[in-house]
Design a binder for these strands. Structure first.
Length: 281
DNA sequence: GTGTTTGTTATCAA
DNA sequence: CTTGATAACAAACA
């Protein structure tokens, strides 16, 4: 489940290797993954990497971009002569790349490959004109992001405008960009707020605590190189480590890190939700 | 064969 | 029209 820290980890990795290189060819093995025309991409040079929420943008020098969404199990793995000796995580779906999950491959002018792997094939890569990118509903409707334009004031404003359950609000990309299930659960634990609370019931103190907790867990996610609980790997095919440091996510029936009460798992909006019934009020 | 997983979009009710 | 709640969808695996 690549969320903001995971996509940012990939972006930082790819940035080191892709910039300045020309795309020589595109191999499409699963057509539905790629939207647009290959012609708009082949021959273009990669000049930048951006992230918008959980979306990754590969900027080209011909007024086009490749917009990527990894959904649940997408990966972008770079391999060249120097990096191909690095051990690949088993999560890439095979010892060698391309694996049976490599649905799209970019070939670069230095002989390197960028593999798009996706076990469940939910993700997509779209070639689109730069000036049309922000017209795509997914990007156009993206809410403000932590570390970017989501100030505490803005966060309060968003909260006062809604009457959702807090965890649902945190994960709503149109309200706040980049937070998914892992970090929503952990931020609520850190702020000691029950995921089922209606946002209107939150005190301004609680909102502030939650705001800081969001920044804190996202920062930790980044520091640990993302969470590889599922299929996430970084740009070199290596796992992150946040999954070993989650506060409550994925810890059903394990003792709470504060009070040893067993972590509960419930469903909220159809999603797995973990919390400490004693600490989170 | 069934249930489970999540990010996103579609649909429906109020 | 808006908001919120819920269903559906993508695909694979235990």
């Amino acid at each position: 489940m690549p969320e903001l820290p995971e996509v940012e980890t990939i972006r930082l990795g790819l940035q080191k290797y892709l910039i300045g290189h020309k795309i020589v060819s595109v191999q499409i093995r699963v057509p539905k993954i790629f939207i647009g025309s290959v012609k708009q991409v082949v021959g273009a040079k990669i000049i930048g990497l951006k992230r918008i929420g959980k979306g990754l943008i590969i900027e080209l020098n011909n007024n086009f971009v490749l917009a990527v969404h990894l959904k649940m199990t997408g990966q972008l793995v770079y391999r060249d002569e120097k990096t191909k000796r690095l051990a690949l995580s088993v999560k890439t779906g095979g010892e060698k790349l391309p694996s049976k999950y490599s649905h799209l491959i970019l070939v670069l002018d230095n002989g390197a490959f960028l593999y798009y792997n996706d076990l469940r094939r939910f993700g997509w890569i779209k070639a689109i004109r730069k000036d049309q990118l922000m017209q795509m509903p997914f990007f156009k409707e993206m809410g403000p992001e932590p570390f970017k334009d989501l100030t505490l004031e803005k966060f309060k404003e968003i909260i006062f405008k809604s009457n959702l359950v807090i965890k649902i609000l945190l994960m709503d990309q149109k309200r706040i960009g980049g937070i998914g299930n892992i970090y929503a659960n952990d931020a609520l634990f850190e702020a000691k707020i029950a995921p089922t609370r209606k946002v209107r019931s939150l005190s301004s103190e609680e909102i502030k605590k939650l705001y800081e907790a969001i920044l804190d867990v996202l920062r930790k996610g980044l520091e640990y190189g993302g969470s590889s609980d599922e299929n996430f790997v970084n740009a070199l095919g290596q796992e992150g480590n946040y999954q070993n440091h989650t506060l409550v996510y994925g810890r059903e029936k394990e003792p709470c890190k504060n009070c040893k009460t067993l972590i509960k798992k419930i469903k909220l909006g159809g999603r797995g939700t973990y919390y400490c019934p004693a600490c989170q009020k």
